[in-house]
Design a protein around this nucleic acid. Structure first.
Lengths: 247, 247
DNA sequence: GCAATAGTGTCTGTAAGACAGTATATT
DNA sequence: AATATACTGTCTTACAGACACTATTGC
């Protein structure tokens, strides 16, 4: 194996949320020779920022660039990398750090948690160099993951929902032009609650981030919905400064 | 120097806020042979959680136990430990990690930021083993600090204010029994804004975390204020679940 | 005309924020 | 009496949340 210098005892873990058609999923992977599902993660190179390390990890699996990553919490407890289910001898376990090989299983890693949210319908999953499998999982079908990764997902969800509540989303999740029911479904799916149509529309229009277009989209045997786009400046400003409270 | 095993390239930095008598201060220190003020920080032992590492760092300087620490952000950029003002040869710079000596200056450290808030009047500052000086600084008198530590303080303040806005504080900052003006001054100082007396009292009483006692405190040539204590259960519950929005 | 979905306005309750006059303790 | 600080209630306004009928399209 080629010797690459990574910071030892440090990793990044990514909770990659994917949205498509009223479904919210999480990207999970299996390490070769390991057999347990886990979050995509990786290590930090000696000359790399932690944010770029997290972006690289996400890019390796999804091919996506320009992801909007959010750091949500850092985990560091000597017990967190113990998992009694691991058969140590079978595990892909040697990794070169600073010229010496290290057991990546069962040794203490401090891990920086990031999450991101993306449209998953066009993502073609690629396996990383040490991956055996990689797939999207619906939130209610997440298996028991390695280490503390189930907890990371819980924490990331809380952070994501908080974010959605205070900052605009949707630019990378919806088409350029979208309907009010579409963006409402996005919010409802992420927040896992239903929102009154009239109140939703009132509120989001008042925030100013949407522009109503003089176009409609014909979909099915019913009244055609109007199309909207994001107001670029207002959207960017709200992303900077936040919105008092959204939904 | 004794060989202690620490996780390399990883540190914790503490923003220790101290409140006393309408003043909010930050504890800063100077490293021996360095000459620049910085946040108290330290390294993580091989068998230690990052939270305990941060507690140990705070304990070393303040002697305080049972601090309520909050992790707010992790910093990791190869550029963050560069500081052109450092005279490298003069710096206390050798530290033993994993049996080998490492330059702690100018090498890449990922740092986990914690903040805490404590009453500072009874704290007797102790110098850590590598400290030259350690003192409280008012927020508007903070000098230019090493590395990105001024930014850490900014971020910690935002996190602290957010926390104060959504969770109860005061148990470790006020005496067992306190007056309404006292707790209001605490909020006003931390949030750096004045709050209407009538609205403050209305709001905090409605939250249920205060119990009005049938006692008054005689202080000075004016009407005696009533005393209050925290409602233990309500306080604990609010600390768990948060309060919609406070001030 | 039937089925399906989109569009829209009003009312009510609650909470935030502005605001001023009275009460009490000390000297 | 004068000074200093504490105590308290009402009004206005904005927003959240509940709620129902009409409009359009395809078949």
């Amino acid at each position: 194996m080629k010797s690459i210098s990574y910071l030892s005892h440090l990793s990044v873990d990514n909770v990659i949320f994917g949205y498509h058609n009223k479904q919210l999923k999480v990207l999970l992977m299996k390490l070769r020779n390991n057999g347990h599902w886990m979050l995509p993660g990786g290590f930090v190179k000696e000359d790399e920022s932690i944010l770029n390390a997290a972006k690289r990890v996400a890019h390796e699996r999804t091919g996506l660039d320009q992801l909007y990553l959010n750091q949500f919490k850092t985990y560091g407890d000597p017990q967190r990398n113990k998992d009694s289910r691991i058969e140590k001898q079978k595990v892909y376990q040697k990794y070169t750090f600073d010229q010496k090989e290290v057991n990546i299983v069962d040794s203490y890693f401090v891990s920086i948690g990031y999450y991101t949210l993306t449209e998953f319908s066009k993502v073609e999953i690629q396996l990383g160099p040490v991956d055996e499998d990689c797939q999207w999982f619906a939130l209610d079908e997440i298996p028991h993951l390695l280490y503390d990764h189930n907890q990371l997902i819980k924490d990331a969800l809380i952070a994501l929902r908080f974010h959605v509540d205070h900052y605009p989303i949707g630019k990378k999740l919806l088409e350029k032009k979208f309907t009010m029911p579409e963006i409402q479904a996005l919010y409802e799916t992420i927040l896992e609650k239903s929102i009154d149509r009239r109140n939703f529309s009132k509120k989001i229009m008042k925030s100013g981030i949407l522009i109503k277009l003089d176009e409609q989209r014909n979909i099915g045997a019913h009244r055609a919905p109007y199309l909207y786009t994001f107001h670029e400046e207002k959207y960017a400003e709200a992303l900077q400064n936040g919105i008092a409270s959204f939904f």
